[in-house]
Design a protein around this nucleic acid. Structure first.
Lengths: 113, 113
DNA sequence: CCCGTCACACACCATTTGGTGCCTAACGGA
DNA sequence: TCCGTTAGGCACCAAATGGTGTGTGACGGG
């Protein structure tokens, strides 16, 4: 029933099953962002991986890519309505981490043997 | 603020940033399970990957491993209190998928060019 | 007329992830 | 005594992920 194997929940898990998808979605929560700005705000992500992540999110209909015919070129990424509906679940994880990060790290430290 | 780069939220995202972690946690939601039973209920996971996933979850303090000195050997995995606190956020994603899976697949289909 | 900026593409590389197949220890039963 | 069952180790492999470094087109400015 409902949540295992090839079910729909797996689709959602797959959307978040990489290092940057959720981070980039979260970084877009306040509105459109240019890639350079995204890299600053996120920190630690290369341009290549950022563009790959943005392509994935665009492919899944979670963000849109808007280009402006200027020079130097300008591009903005923005959450779609669909993408915005993911902010709630993502925030649930953020809140969980805020409450339990110390417990996870304590559990990890117990394995120093 | 507080959700980008090296912050605590990244820790939670990392916990779910692979194919099977969330699935296995979810499969354990009703109580202890033996590995064979888990593989049946989940479907499509090899024994190697299942044990690796269980080791990861155990390492992060989300599940416990209990062995019984019997033959054939018996092992049971169970959510810890900490692991149970993750069921809420995971369920939020399941619910999201239930509501929006069709939109994601429709978005993917738009890229058939 | 060369320089810097921006948003990539592209070549290349290391590590991780997921997967298959084979092997083992230990026992109860045929 | 050989078989089946259970959990999982081990060798091996392919693909995906993440990362670095370099090149590029188009324009405005010095």
């Amino acid at each position: 029933m409902g949540f295992i194997a090839d079910c729909q929940a797996r689709l959602a898990f797959d959307l978040l099953a990489n290092t940057w998808n959720a981070v980039v979605l979260w970084a877009l929560r306040h509105g459109p962002r240019r890639p350079g700005r995204l890299r600053e705000e996120i920190g630690g992500i290369s341009t290549k991986v950022l563009t790959e992540t943005l392509r994935r999110l665009e492919f899944n209909g979670l963000i849109t890519r808007r280009t402006y015919a200027e020079a130097p070129p300008r591009v903005e990424y923005e959450l779609t309505d669909l993408g915005r509906t993911l902010l709630g679940p993502i925030e649930a994880f953020g809140a969980w981490a805020h409450d339990h990060a110390d417990e996870v790290m304590a559990a990890q430290d117990r394995w120093e043997t």
